[in-house]
Design a binder for these strands. Structure first.
Lengths: 130, 130
DNA sequence: CGGAATCCCAGCCGATACTG
DNA sequence: CAGTATCGGCTGGGATTCCG
């Protein structure tokens, strides 16, 4: 059929009888999944930005979710948070090297999605119709 | 900083003031997000399989979620469902060409996750430590 | 400015039981 | 074999309010 070498990594984990929720691969997938983290990584790919700047760039995000998403990404070492003791204090977020390296694979996925957007929409219509 | 050509596709959508939930890119991301669809695509990358065969390969999935996940993938044209009028009836699922083409980008993401699994785990420990 | 705390609901998802 | 039906818990995430 096709060599699915990469996919077998998940397979191996599954066959070890491990808890799927602790699989490290799932963890990354969950970031991609999370409603906002992809957008945030995208925004930061343009350069470091401050809390409210990111918020303004993503109009529909609440402060609550922005905070939480930033924490999640920081926790996993994908972005770094730096506080400047100005008055009032400002906080800057930027991609780490690891976060930067994620943009490649993530971009590939987004490219695929863009390329297949209309076939998918078509498939949905066809499915709904019959 | 870095060319983020791919990522700008999402950006464009956002700036059009569109509802993010209807962005076609999000549809794909949601599949990746969903707890089981990635595993199912993985399993089917090895070749066509029947309902219960997939279920046995993914021991922790319930029939309910298996059905639902298969429907989701079928709805978007990533897998195809074929019923054989045997006795008792059997149903076979296989990747479509579009589904097959998703394995590449998805595999790249999984490779990245596998490669950075331990740095991420390390970052989490460091973060938890304070 | 950059958050934290609280309330609350929609939906995801698991368990269980039933069907053609 | 390949589903469908129903119930219910858990949590993601929106709205709002308060704080250093």
């Amino acid at each position: 059929m096709r060599d699915a070498v990469a996919l077998d990594r998940l397979e191996v984990w599954k066959q070890k009888g491990q808890d799927l929720s602790k699989c490290p691969v799932r963890h990354v997938l969950d970031h991609v999944a999370a409603k906002w983290t992809t957008l945030i990584l995208m925004e930061l790919s343009k350069g470091p930005a401050r809390f409210n700047a990111i918020g303004r760039a993503l109009p529909d995000i609440s402060k609550r979710m922005l905070t939480q998403s930033l924490r999640d990404l920081e926790r996993d070492g994908l972005i770094a948070r730096e506080v400047f003791p100005t008055k009032p204090p400002s906080v800057e977020y930027r991609l780490t090297e690891m976060g930067l390296s994620l943009l490649g694979p993530l971009g590939a996925l987004i490219d695929w999605a863009e390329l297949h957007a209309s076939p998918i929409a078509e498939a949905r219509r066809a499915y709904a119709a019959g």
